[in-house]
Design a protein around this nucleic acid. Structure first.
Lengths: 227, 227
DNA sequence: AACGGTAATTATGAATTCATAATGCAGTCA
DNA sequence: TGACTGCATTATGAATTCATAATTACCGTT
């Protein structure tokens, strides 16, 4: 009997990885902060062992940094790291776009179309929160549409590290309008299933997002200012 | 004070991650095999705790699979996984090629040139082992030349999972000749620092490698037989 | 009063212990 | 004779304990 398709009973440390990851992504634990094992243990009602195992995993993902005998700190995202990460995300999205074009069902494309409409509507209303959510959904749908869980994993790994950078906070009107135009073009390509076209657009879309973000960071000394 | 640039003193579980990773990559632990904690503990002379932490990390990297209360097994590389992984490696190499073109020093390019000559020589002598080593060195040099440690990490993560597939074992004469031609072209692009050109070549080179490998796998039923 | 050193406290890395889930074997019943 | 069930053994997940390294506070000296 092949041992694929075995039931995946979530073990304690896996649960913790998930919870901790969310804490970091949702900024409940802020970059640079210490991650106090003791407090988290009683907060989650678990012993230190599984929590430490979870921290090791988070560290290998780069979300936290372990210092020998000095515990874990939430990783800070430096500007240099952003510069290194965005191009990688960009080429992954390029690939995802190509694959999604080939693999998405008509129904799924319709769904994305709807979310796209929501997003445009949110843009008209200048509703940043709704826009951000719809945008996220669309990108996620395209990534998932690639039908490549490994691609998805690596994309999530990279995206989770820069998500904290909060692109939306400093979204200029110009860039916003440009982003909408780019999304329109993406939808055009998706409708006719032009995979290379969509891939290219998603790549440049991400690089533009990156450029805008770096521009926004420009005034800053170079390190990440908090809040 | 920014807490970047802290000294990275290797802790016990990190050491173990390294050692175990090598065991898996070097096929000392074969795919599908159980990873017996007890034996490894006495083999390395450590307790189970750091070893288990290491296994969690390896699992998050996808090198081993954890099953609740059933321990860890070395991950088997299914054909489907290969099909999902290679395109990702390909786009990462594409990006690496572009970046390496821009960032490599002349001296480094000379070094690669030398290794390339070694590789061609090994091809002439039909010395698979030497060829494989030189090939590996060249690819590594190009990846490192990208000056992007995050890209490097993800590339290594993906490559280590398929390395076991041992492309070289079933390298047809045709494919071998083609690979050499592709490498010649890559060197041409690198010499004139045509970044897009090198990127494209590295991508297609990887996809061709992939295609050849899939072809070699063809006869196999599709799933990996267990012991 | 300030700076440096030492001691104490705290917290982290690692070992050991404990409990529970899985597997294998044996015995019995069809 | 073969299959199924129950028990025992083994091994894994998790908690607790232990030791060591780091940080902080306090005291002494300049």
């Amino acid at each position: 009997m092949p041992l694929t398709e075995t039931i995946h009973r979530p073990t304690l440390h896996e649960e913790l990885v998930e919870r901790l990851r969310n804490l970091v992504i949702e900024d409940a634990l802020k970059p640079g902060e210490k991650v106090p094992e003791k407090d988290l243990c009683e907060a989650f009602g678990v012993s230190r062992t599984p929590l430490r195992e979870a921290l090791k995993v988070l560290a290998s993902e780069g979300l936290v940094v372990l210092q020998a005998n000095r515990g874990a700190r939430v990783a800070t995202v430096t500007r240099e790291e952003l510069e290194k990460t965005f191009p990688i995300i960009a080429v992954l999205e390029e690939l995802a776009g190509e694959l999604a074009c080939k693999n998405l069902s008509e129904a799924e494309i319709d769904k994305i179309e709807k979310r796209h409409a929501d997003m445009v509507e949110a843009y008209r209303a200048r509703d940043r929160k709704a826009y951000f959510q719809a945008n996220q959904d669309i990108h996620n749908a395209l990534i998932e549409g690639a039908r490549n869980d490994i691609l998805e994993t690596h994309h999530r790994l990279l995206a989770s590290r820069v998500r904290r950078a909060r692109f939306m906070a400093n979204l200029s009107d110009d860039r916003w309008a440009q982003a909408i135009r780019e999304h329109e073009q993406m939808m055009d390509k998706l409708r006719v299933r032009d995979s290379e076209g969509l891939g290219q657009l998603m790549k440049t879309h991400m690089m533009n997002k990156y450029a805008a973000h770096i521009r926004a960071l420009e005034p800053v000394s170079g390190d990440t200012a908090e809040d």
